[in-house]
Amino acid sequence: MTQPALADSAVTLLTAQAISVVRGGDGVLREVDLAVREQEIVTIIGPNGAGKSTLLAALMGLTPLAGGRVIRHPRLVVGYVPQRLRMDPVLPLTVARFIHLSAPRASLPLAWMGRLGCDRLLERPMHGLSGGEMQRVLLTRALIRRPNLLVLDEPAQGMDMAGEQELYGFIEQLRREEGMAALLVSHNLHFVMAGADHVICLNRHVCCFGSPVAVSTTPEFQQLFGSKATGLGYYQHHHDHRHTPLGVVRETP
């Protein structure tokens, strides 16, 4: 399978070559190939137990490989948003302190925090956050080291529809304005179709791979998204404005 070229000169930030992961004697991932280039958004989709989170962990060096290898560009800085973070109330930790744990001397990305609605959470204890607030805080923490690749594991968990749209809009904005690449696990059909440059269907191995339009015709994709996908005439248009979460057009400055 060849990857359609984004731009020939684009730097490949992260490459996986035939990586396999074995856990408790079971093959969780089998010979997965993957590449993420600068400013590229790659979405991983797949059923439960497909090894999506394991793949992310393996790419970031958090899980030992049983085979294959991962090549990281020397300039790669990863910002990671894990699938969930369970905060034990016995550890007193404010949001500001939690974000600073990652880089004690770095300044907070205040502009982004305002955009995410995180600035007013700073003094709140971590264990009191709602699911959606937690995701925003995790994303802010991922941004503090000024990454060039965001790795997000189902980042919209616990968010309502409007929050989810805002979040995906934010990821696209980061790519547009900061040149940040993103590798994410997502089942938001709209984002997968409109936001991603490449889609990978994973089920312990790579079932299909390609542009969203190409992948959407595969049986694996249709099985995953059901009739939602087949009946969807996806209309792609260029945005010269932003929407508020309620759909009101907001002028771009």
Binding site: A57, M60, G61, L62, V78, Y80, P82, L85, M87, L91, L93, F98, L101, S102, R141
Partner: peptide
């Protein structure tokens, strides 16, 4: 807080 995040 989180070993994976700390490791990164």
């Amino acid at each position: 807080v989180h070993e994976g995040l700390a490791s990164l």
